[in-house]
């Protein structure tokens, strides 16, 4: 059994020969781990999934999935993975037939097929629409079928490319819980999302991908601790204080912040040294006759970590 269930080393991929969609992507996951790949649009998340699932080639680097080489043993990889694509994918058939066909394609025996289908239909709340044709379903219903259908077969690794987009919070939570259960039983999960809250909730480790490479990696708490001194101070100035960014920048010209935003009479400061600078900030505002109505200090969220990391 390989120590790392997915092992990707220095992958590079260009579509046009000029810009690299992946530019030295390196990461690994253990068995039964849920690894979250976070990144903004076009960061390389879907490209990396397409390479790992052997759908497209790459220019350089190497990798293994479930111990199989992604180039030389592509057919073996495809027999032991599941993939939920970001885009819609379904057969022009009823919901039930989509499950049955998935079972047929993956050689699940007829009895097993029916029992798994019923279990998944029940679990994913699809009973009312089981006889409906896919065309007649809403986007969220189609997505539920797409995710549920993938669990018709046994697999070692599942790649989930933004699987909860378009789902309501209850269903999103149900799906995440189901994925967690599967991971607890040994399924390795590679999960991409832009919803940092759900990544925080479900992922054992998170890799933040930017410009085709992992720029930060760790557990959610590790990342937050790493950027833990980064706090957000929000100051509401009095209503009569219409502020401009230049004006506020001038006031704080002696101080250095990671981020400074001004919107009408609200100043947002993201800084590492808030405790040290808070008194100075308040004095400067007072000295410049800016009346402070209210302040709020927030500890870092994964959103902050993400923003900080991709803006580095």
């Amino acid at each position: 059994m390989p120590e790392n269930y997915i092992e990707i080393e220095n992958l590079r991929k260009t579509y046009d020969g000029k810009k690299y969609a992946l530019d030295g992507l390196t990461f690994n996951t253990g068995k039964g781990e849920i690894y979250g790949l976070l990144g903004k649009n076009g960061a390389g998340k879907s490209t990396s999934i397409k390479i790992m699932t052997t759908l497209i080639g790459f220019n350089s680097g190497k990798g293994t999935v479930a111990g199989y080489d992604i180039v030389k043993e592509a057919a073996k990889i495809r027999k032991c993975i599941g993939v939920v694509q970001q885009e819609e994918s379904y057969d022009f058939a009823t919901v039930e037939n989509n499950f049955k066909l998935a079972g047929l394609l993956w050689e699940v025996g007829r009895e097993e097929r029916d029992s798994r289908m019923n279990e998944l239909i029940d679990l994913f709340g699809l009973d009312e629409i089981r006889k409906k044709r896919m065309f007649d379903l809403s986007g969220g219903q189609k997505k539920r079928v797409q995710v549920a259908r993938e669990f018709m077969h046994d697999m070692k690794v599942i790649f989930l490319d933004e699987p909860t987009v378009g789902l309501d919070p209850i269903m999103r939570r149900k799906i995440l819980d189901y994925i967690r259960q599967k991971a607890n039983k040994g399924l390795t999960v590679l999960f991409t999302t832009q919803n940092l809250e759900e990544a925080d909730m479900i992922c054992d480790r998170i890799g933040i991908i930017n410009n085709g490479m992992i720029v930060e990696e760790g557990t959610s708490s590790q990342l937050k601790n790493k950027y833990g001194n980064l706090r957000t101070l929000t100051i509401w100035a009095g209503d009569e204080s219409m502020l401009s960014k230049e004006q506020v920048q001038n006031i704080f010209s002696d101080l250095s912040f990671d981020q400074l935003e001004v919107k009408e009479n609200v100043i947002t400061i993201i800084t590492k040294n808030l405790e040290k600078n808070l008194g100075k900030i308040m004095s400067l505002l007072s000295a410049n006759n800016i009346q402070v109505e209210r302040i709020n200090v927030e500890n870092p969220t994964l959103d902050d970590v993400f923003i900080k990391v991709v803006q580095k």
């Binding site: 759908l55 993975i81 994918s89 022009f92 993956w106």
Partner: peptide
């Protein structure tokens, strides 16, 4: 064409098929 259009070509190509 319809498999490409509706995502099933890609889905099948990541399954146990050549």
């Amino acid at each position: 064409w319809s498999d490409r259009r509706w995502g099933m070509f890609e889905q099948i190509m990541v399954g146990p098929f050549r």
